[in-house]
Write a protein that binds this DNA or RNA. Structure first.
Lengths: 191, 191
DNA sequence: CAGATGGGATGATGCTGATCATCCTATAGA
DNA sequence: TCTATAGGATGATCAGCATCATCCCATCTG
């Protein structure tokens, strides 16, 4: 074969990475195959050499998005020397930076309602990624027993997701920051 | 004219009501003009006798959705004899009933990320509806001063929105109920 | 250097959906 | 009963998009 054997895998991964950004920025429905391929510097035609269907790409791009944000949050938690890990996660998650750059943020804040609407098959492929995300965050959550930490995960992430989504609807940076700060204060004083 | 003068206004309102349901169930992008008209028992062609554009319908349907849920929550709060109004709102909002029927629920849980992505013009038309929703809920929120109640509104609704969205991604009713119950407990013990 | 191979490009195809011009028809009012 | 009128239906147009058949060409192998 003409290319290095890993070449195709690399291109595949680049498409997935680009799609994971575009999907968070434009939505599952708002993401066109041709646009993703253009992001990658290719044309739409070659797409089906890499993926069996658009849905296949969407699932892979969501997996990548979950991994991406979990990596970032885990890093923030691990680098939090002075404070509790979960507080570092809250501060990182609820930053203006992520508010203004949905494409780098959590796929839940960007896509949860859309993910709830995809067909059964796709939902069943997405669910494990959500579970995996939760399990990666669990060790950083407050609480002594696993069940406590699991409840903390759901409470903390529910609040962060909702606050981020409300903030993103607001036109002015100062209003967005007010909502984010309010959720930060609420969470940091609740556990 | 052949019809009662209020006939057109009635049909217009029926289209808006049907659209407000469909939009919450299928998303802004997922809602086709022809589908809404079919819901109303009409065909797609007459649509532009009632609305200048699809976006115009979307804005009106969102307004209707906000009014719809605000009415329901206000009623729940007012009928809460034994308990604090805001607790009645939390219990109503975070019910399996609303989880399984997005089309009757809060447009924020169903559409917040999509609303954050619509163009500036539409966003500026949606914002007042969000503000109005907040203001209608404010008197029921815990806290003495307005600023406290406003912070409570953002904290409580953020948590409810996020929890509902996570719950809606889950395939089994028992899992959904667990997430909803977790958020309910968290909120009811936090204020 | 020649030939084979597969990644990528070009260019259909067909569907869905928004928008709109035009036609149809029921009925208020004479 | 007759006519004007406007709400609603039909059908066309046009654009966006997923999917795929086919072609091209870079380069690895011999």
């Amino acid at each position: 074969m003409r290319y290095q054997p890993e070449h195709k895998a690399e291109v595949h991964q680049k498409i997935v990475k680009d799609a994971s950004r575009r999907v968070r920025a434009e939505g599952l429905t708002g993401t066109a195959v041709a646009a993703v391929m253009r992001d990658t510097g290719l044309t739409h035609g070659g797409f089906y050499k890499h993926f069996g269907s658009k849905d296949e790409l969407l699932v892979e791009s969501l997996r990548e998005a979950f991994r991406d944000i979990a990596d970032k949050l885990a890093r923030a938690a691990e680098q939090s020397h002075a404070e509790t890990p979960w507080k570092a996660i809250v501060k990182t998650y609820l930053s203006l930076e992520y508010c203004d750059h949905a494409e780098r943020g959590c796929p839940l804040t960007a896509l949860a309602p859309e993910m709830a609407r995809v067909d059964k098959k796709m939902r069943s492929q997405i669910l494990p990624e959500l579970v995996n995300y939760k399990n990666r965050m669990l060790p950083f959550m407050p609480g002594l027993r696993t069940a406590d930490r699991e409840r903390a995960f759901f409470s903390i992430f529910s609040t962060m997701i909702g606050a981020m989504e409300i903030a993103r609807m607001l036109p002015e940076s100062s209003m967005r920051e007010k909502v984010l700060a309010s959720a930060r204060d609420f969470l940091l004083h609740s556990f």
